[in-house]
Design a protein around this nucleic acid. Structure first.
Lengths: 346, 346
DNA sequence: CTTCAGCACTCCGCCCGGAAGAGTGCTAAT
DNA sequence: ATTAGCACTCTTCCGGGCGGAGTGCTGAAG
């Protein structure tokens, strides 16, 4: 956001408006600002500046004789110029450590994190755990349940266990052979590489009569070897906090409903928290993607271990959220994620 | 509920009041009833009966000149005398089958069920999957992740996979020996029996210097062999439907908050849906257990496979819920659960 | 040229009183 | 036993008036 039509004084007043509005929720008038402004400008002068800011699209009035409220542009500007260096309050830091101490697996981390985030932000904590397809294969195990059903378990070296039941009819012997073949040949390969190589061998060897290859073919087609797949688990916590927001009943309901559509949340987070983006991202104006999310913002970060993305963590809250606090918390937890989960790997 | 102080006419009028109130939500007056009553009683006569019912504690008035609304006792009475035989509407039956077709594992069944129940009842669907400790052991697998961490995977014959990371320091060799020992000795045992027997052997043999027994001791103490444990997964769906209820903002928030406290829900369901109880259970007056649940009822049933309880399914909705429909749906799904999951076992 | 006091104006939110409506309980008649 | 009639109660809705908050503009002062 380069040269805005905002001079120094304008900047100061704009942030003042944003901050007072965030804390009170009422449209802010010139009188209020004049009182809190250290330079002691008179209401009249402030009115002039505010009129300019309104023209520039940073403020708006609910009606003629009310104070001003910030527009989306104002929030963006405000967040832009927040100093990136803030410290977590001690109680929050303690809370985070209490909840996340000793966590070793991604699912559990994400579950607790969504909760902690909702507590800290007083709004909704959303986390997504994405099965990493870059993790190395540790062990597969197949077992025949009934005539028609086979249980497949894949364990990756990072400790992720993924199981699914497939509709296949293979004998226990065939399954054991297949498992041994895969374990012996592919231990330590990344899931991606393994899948690719198996596909290649199947395609190439075309030995339809080979019993082993046939079993593997069936297992592969049935999805037994997908470590990631639709294994995107979504955790949403703190929806009750929304009931305290000033949205009307109908909007509240739509909001809650949207939060229940896990798939939409995944793509929302996916769309904004791309892997390249290292730091915390703040998205203001969520209604472009999800109309029901008018007046709500997303504050999130990708969760990565090393340089592999294993999920996302975010807070979804009203525009009137405490940006500084929430951003600090999100980024803190994102770093903690990397740290805690790195321990688990070799 | 034996001889109530209610004669035949009283019964008829009481159910009429309950039904009208359920469908309109407004206090019902004598005039309204007189119009819908087939025997064409006059409002004045109805008023007499209603006065009696009020004295008996089945009806109450929000204020002097309003109609009557049913008390908890009235709902209980109403549910009591509902004919148990109703059919699912075709669309609902289709919806259930669409969602649950081909499901093979308990977790997935419960997840979808909570959703379906919320759709059918237009309120909150709650399901709990309880790891059955009666299921037979199929396979265990241990793997060393780091110096301090060991991954334990337990697969039961019913297709349940349970994994956890333990803080133990055992070598890969020790782990493999332990796994082989358990797999060879205990395959097919129930988890309960296996745990008991292992505890016995550990206690008895006291051969502290036996390397194998020592590993197993550590794994056992670390909880590697608990298939159930706190593995109670709770699914809550349809909270957004609550926003449409007439509760005020604060009550709504408390309600949502309660629904987020999974542990409370588990004990709530646990308390009311005992195993012996075969059929659908309707609990009116939930506020005795959970104050925030005033004006809400629970309609639920245990989910069992054969005679083993594997969880609970329930609807939590306002007292003004469609009891007949919801009860039918819950019981239908409970039966479906048994049927679908029986296929999976041997 | 900037700042600011003063002023007229606008618009919302609140309170109040009155009227309409719904429902009751009681009494007296059938 | 049932019911028409009636007086009474209580809520809800509506319109008007008033106070408050805030604005934009103008003209004076630094």
């Amino acid at each position: 956001m380069p040269d805005l039509p905002i001079d120094n004084r304008g900047r100061e007043i704009l942030t003042a408006v944003v901050e007072t509005f965030i804390s009170t929720g009422e449209p802010v008038g010139s009188r209020t600002l004049s009182r809190s402004n250290r330079e002691g400008l008179s209401p009249a002068s402030i009115r002039n500046v505010m009129a300019d800011l309104t023209d520039a699209g940073f403020l708006e009035q609910p009606h003629t004789s009310a104070g001003r409220i910030p527009t989306a542009a104002a929030y963006r500007y405000y967040v832009e110029q927040l100093s990136g260096t803030a410290h977590l309050s001690l109680t929050n830091e303690a809370m985070i450590h209490d909840s996340l101490q000793g966590i070793t697996d991604v699912q559990e981390f994400m579950e607790r994190t969504s909760h902690v985030l909702s507590l800290i932000s007083h709004s909704v904590g959303v986390t997504v755990a994405t099965g990493g397809s870059k993790s190395a294969l540790e062990h597969v195990y197949f077992s025949r349940l009934t005539d028609q059903k086979v249980l497949a378990v894949v364990v990756t070296r990072s400790g992720l266990v993924r199981d699914r039941v497939l509709r296949l009819n293979l004998s226990q012997d065939d399954l054991e052979l297949a498992a041994r073949y895969i374990n012996e040949n592919f231990r330590g390969w990344t899931m991606e590489a393994m899948r690719a190589e198996i596909a290649r061998r199947l395609d190439q060897e075309r030995s339809e009569y080979d019993r082993l290859m046939n079993s593997i073919q069936q297992l592969y087609a049935g999805g037994a070897l997908a470590a990631e797949g639709p294994a995107q688990t979504v955790y949403v916590e703190g929806a009750s906090n929304l009931a305290a927001s000033e949205e009307d009943r109908q909007r509240l309901q739509e909001l809650l409903k949207t939060l229940e559509e896990k798939q939409k949340l995944v793509s929302l987070l996916g769309a904004y928290l791309d892997a390249k983006q290292e730091a915390v991202r703040v998205v203001i104006g969520l209604d472009e993607a999800l109309p029901s999310m008018r007046n709500f913002v997303l504050i999130g970060a990708p969760a990565r271990v090393g340089d592999e993305v294993r999920g996302s963590l975010a807070v979804i809250g009203p525009t009137r959220i405490d940006y500084q606090h929430t951003m600090t918390a999100v980024s803190y937890i994102a770093r903690l994620f990397d740290k805690l989960l790195n321990e688990t790997r070799e």
